[in-house]
Design a protein around this nucleic acid. Structure first.
Lengths: 344, 344
DNA sequence: CACGAATCTGCAATCGATTGCTACACGAAG
DNA sequence: CTTCGTGTAGCAATCGATTGCAGATTCGTG
């Protein structure tokens, strides 16, 4: 049950532990005679020796661990993101520890404490809230930090996000192009940059194209199906003019919207078009199949990892990279009822 | 950028480093005078001291890390499982490192190597294939291992799984109760215990209740929508008798089945009932809403963690725990067409 | 033959925290 | 006044690997 140590290897090979260390390190094995190197290697293999990463880390002052902070691992766009990070970092000897905040700022701080105690070499935060800026600034004094997916404002942060303004613009422009001129958005929690940006993109296009924005002022407490349904219910129940197209800040809320429409006796896309965001796994198989915005999450993961490596390598200047999403058109969006005949 | 060490704390507090160590450890702080303890504590806080977990781990011979091996973090039932594990282990000072195998046995072995190099205190494997038994046996000689979700056969393994035989029995019995007597299953990859067990449960009920099993002999290469659709296509295209109900080994394949039916001009549940497995997130919102089997994954995570702790505590005898799934009935399953009128 | 260079290898300090043992001071008891 | 106990705190070894430095050996060359 006890592992072999370098001392054991050295003893079996009949050399000093320092020599064994050098023999086993590709970077330094040229300092060791070919013959002894082979002998050490053989001893190492026969004993099943595996370097003790803790001991090495202690000496070298780096743990080979990267902390990854997410809100909720169940979020479908996180798996390509994590995969992207692993893909870049894994081959370089790093491993990733993932921790969840469940969207709570206190737990973000607690988690970072723990990660610091483990002397992680860097922290990737994909769960930042807008209000976390001061904390993150202080964290950056202690460890390299990369903000992924969500920004926090302020300057000097290394950030890699999706371009959510663009994504929202794409989605909204698509609706306008279909002939809709009375639109509403289902707004996700306002303390997350992604939703704030999507809201901004929506408003830009609505105003540029001279459409009517009949959105609620109320914002979803959580970006869930239930909230999407509730808000859409509110939207439909109001005395004001109804939208003929809805831009939901994520797919879950879009699903909720479709359900609310159905319950109100309206159908999608005939009466109201709905577009979501994220291109979640099952969306293509819904009825109607959901039009949505696809995010390059895998690329985002790789870029985030690249930023980590860059910071570890030398003093990289902070910068913000935005990856471009694109539209996935399916059947939940269609021309406005009557538009065709009107035009004809 | 450099962290304070215990030596710094000791210097500021004007005590020896050993004393500082004791003062900061609740277990041993009674060995230190109340006054000096306070002084050390104050120094620690003023310096923002955080224990170096690597150094402690090296000395104490334990890393406080638990390795978690999964096939694919995108699998929706993993998030409650991971949460369950964190919930038990987090408060006890452990952190979890998650690694993905992508269903490849070589990478299972590579990952375990890396985890061993990090001296993880235990490994939880949720990605085992049936053929991995010998490897896992050898691994158990080096580190406490808990098998979660999937078994590997053989004896002496600490295992916590869903009772997939029962789950399949429940699903199949439900179909038979609805009046179906010609059934087929869509079989997931045969090197995974979960699917083997589901197949067995299905066959048991089919035979007990005197039904006809018209399943394909072919098994899905992967448990995906595409494979579910392809296999269902095959099933419908055969000269043999068509099933009136299909048990898919997971929800994705069930979705594929529904699509294949639709394309063949059949409808679900009117012509053919379909039931899935896992109760994946969107299944309630599909058309038709999918009947399925719900797994207590969160509880499974907690149990797996409990097993880890038990093994870490003392020599617990190996055992297998099976958690009971239950049925979620929605609208993709219905009485056999014509059954009602026949009975009438 | 000798001397400097080149090539290996050993030595020992080091990373930061833990912990068994020792040492000191003080007070009480004999 | 000595002895023993108790409460504190210091000392130093230890975990396992890395690495700058120095010693040793061999080789080439003047």
């Amino acid at each position: 049950m006890s592992e072999a140590t370098l001392k054991d290897v050295a003893r079996v090979a009949g050399v000093h532990v320092g020599t064994a260390s050098r023999a086993l390190d590709p970077e330094r094995s040229h300092l060791v005679n070919e013959v002894t190197r082979k002998r050490v290697q053989a001893a190492s293999e026969s004993l099943g020796y595996k370097v003790n990463v803790m001991a090495r880390g202690l000496r070298k002052g780096s743990s080979g661990l990267i902390g990854m902070v997410v809100a909720d691992v169940g979020n479908p766009f996180l798996s390509p993101l994590l995969r992207g990070i692993e893909q870049e970092l894994g081959p370089r000897g790093f491993m990733t520890v993932v921790a969840e905040t469940h969207e709570k700022s206190e737990s973000l701080q607690q988690i970072c404490e723990q990660l610091l105690a483990r002397r992680v070499d860097a922290i990737v935060i994909a769960a930042a809230h807008l209000g976390d800026e001061p904390f993150i600034r202080s964290l950056e004094a202690l460890v390299p930090v990369v903000l992924a997916v969500r920004q926090v404002g302020g300057t000097g942060h290394h950030t890699v996000t999706h371009d959510d303004v663009l994504g929202a613009r794409l989605a909204t422009a698509h609706l306008v192009d279909l002939g809709h001129d009375t639109l509403a958005q289902l707004h996700g929690p306002a303390d997350v940059s992604s939703f704030v940006d999507r809201a901004a993109g929506f408003r830009q296009v609505v105003s540029e194209r001279g459409c009517r924005d009949v959105s609620l002022t109320e914002v979803a407490a959580k970006p869930t199906v239930a909230e999407g349904k509730r808000l859409t219910g509110l939207l439909l129940g109001r005395a004001a003019i109804r939208p003929t197209a809805i831009f939901a800040h994520n797919d879950l809320m879009a699903v909720g919207a479709v359900e609310a429409l159905t319950e109100a006796g309206l159908s999608c896309p005939e009466d109201v078009s709905v577009i979501g965001y994220n291109d979640s796994p099952m969306t293509a198989h819904l009825e109607p199949a959901l039009s949505t915005v696809r995010l390059p999450s895998h690329a985002l993961g790789r870029q985030a990892a690249a930023r980590v490596l860059a910071q570890l390598g030398g003093q990289e200047p902070a910068s913000t990279l935005q990856l471009q999403p694109d539209l996935v058109l399916r059947s939940s969006t269609a021309g406005r009822r009557g538009v065709l005949s009107t035009t004809a």
